[in-house]
C-alpha cells in the first residue's frame, strides 16, 4: 500500500486524501497513515519553508509558515519507485 500511495502521488502530484483514498480503494484515515509512514521512513518529505531569517528584523510582515502543505519525494522515494 505504501508503494502504491507513493506511486499515485507521483502520478497525481496535487492531491487530496479523498482522491487518493478513492484511487487506492482504502479509507481516508488509511491514506493519512500511509502518508505519515512514508514521511517517517524518509520516502516523502514535508516541506516546511524556513521563511524567517535575520533579515526579518528589517521586515514588517508575517513570517508564519504558509498553510500550503507541500511535499517532495526524496531520492530514496524515487529509487523505490524506479525499482518497483
Amino acid at each position: 500500500m505504501l508503494v502504491e500511495t507513493l506511486r499515485e502521488i507521483k502520478r497525481q502530484p496535487i492531491f487530496s486524501k479523498k482522491s487518493l483514498a478513492d484511487k487506492l480503494n482504502v479509507s481516508e484515515d488509511m491514506v493519512g497513515n500511509a502518508l505519515e509512514q512514508l514521511k517517517r521512513m524518509g520516502y516523502l518529505e514535508e516541506e516546511k519553508p524556513s521563511h524567517c531569517s535575520r533579515n526579518c528584523k528589517f521586515c514588517s510582515f508575517n513570517c508564519s509558515s504558509s498553510s500550503l502543505n507541500t511535499m517532495v519525494i526524496t531520492p530514496k522515494g524515487e529509487k523505490l519507485l524506479s525499482s518497483n
Binding site: E47, P49, S50, H51, C52, S53, N55, C56, F58, C59, S60, F61, N62, C63, S66, T70, V72
Partner: peptide, 14 residues
C-alpha cells in the same frame, strides 16, 4: 505579505 519571507520560501524549489 513581505518579499523577504517570499524569497526565503523559494528555498523549497529543487
Amino acid at each position: 505579505g513581505c518579499n523577504v519571507p517570499g524569497i526565503m520560501a523559494t528555498r523549497t524549489l529543487d
